[in-house]
């Protein structure tokens, strides 16, 4: 597609760089924006700019946050003895929606996936180990995806956490549920947090 307008070309190009947006859809969206007032489009564009410029990762749990410490970590009424380890912030949203978990979170920022070039150093693992050494912390729940990479990450974290004075548990996963936390329904996910088991007992599958 060449529109003989550099401005239009650029806008379509940028729009189609988003995941799942092809050139046609991009054109439709760009034309839609053109039909709106300058103020409206400014506001639209500004919201992304502000998001990118001002959002930070929580200094404690690596959740995304508007402030240095996220709203969950700021909440003193939660249970200080439990930390739930998740891959990314979508998992926090999923677990929060179950209303079954009252502890704090730790976002790893992925899982160990050597095939994709992701090793322990690329994840927030050292920070988790540091947090686990706080004497208020009694339990670490591992809530990672039930894949081979998730397993390797679980084993790795378990090994690292064995130096700390905490017990390590994994959320219960039904057989055949290979899907990610995000897609697990609230009731199932809520149950799998309540029915978590000590990691040792899940070693021999």
């Amino acid at each position: 597609m060449d529109f003989k307008s550099k401005l239009l070309n650029n806008a379509v190009e940028e729009m189609s760089s988003l995941p799942g947006i092809g050139k046609r859809t991009a054109l439709r969206l760009v034309l839609h924006l053109l039909n709106q007032s300058k103020e409206e489009v400014n506001q639209f564009a500004n919201s992304f700019k502000l998001l990118r410029e001002n959002i930070v990762f929580c200094k404690i749990c690596y959740n995304i946050s508007d402030t240095e410490i996220c709203h969950i970590c700021q909440n003193k009424n939660r249970d200080h003895s439990i930390i739930c380890v998740v891959q990314d912030i979508r998992d926090i949203l999923a677990i929060e929606s179950t209303q079954q978990f009252k502890g704090y979170y730790h976002v790893l920022g992925g899982i160990i996936s050597p095939m994709d070039g992701i090793g322990p150093d690329d994840l927030n693992i050292d920070e988790l180990i540091l947090r686990s050494k706080d004497e208020k912390v009694k339990e670490i729940i591992l809530a990672l995806s039930a894949t081979m990479e998730g397993d390797t990450t679980n084993f790795y974290l378990f090994r690292k956490l064995s130096e700390s004075n905490v017990k390590t548990s994994v959320i219960a996963r039904g057989i055949g549920i290979g899907n990610e936390l995000e897609y697990t329904d609230e009731i199932t996910l809520g149950r799998s947090i309540i029915h978590r088991s000590l990691f040792e007992s899940s070693l021999s599958k």
Binding site: P120, T152, Y156, K160
Partner: peptide
Amino acid sequence: NADLLAVIDMQ
């Protein structure tokens, strides 16, 4: 990273 290799080896 000996720990990482160890958990892969174990499996």
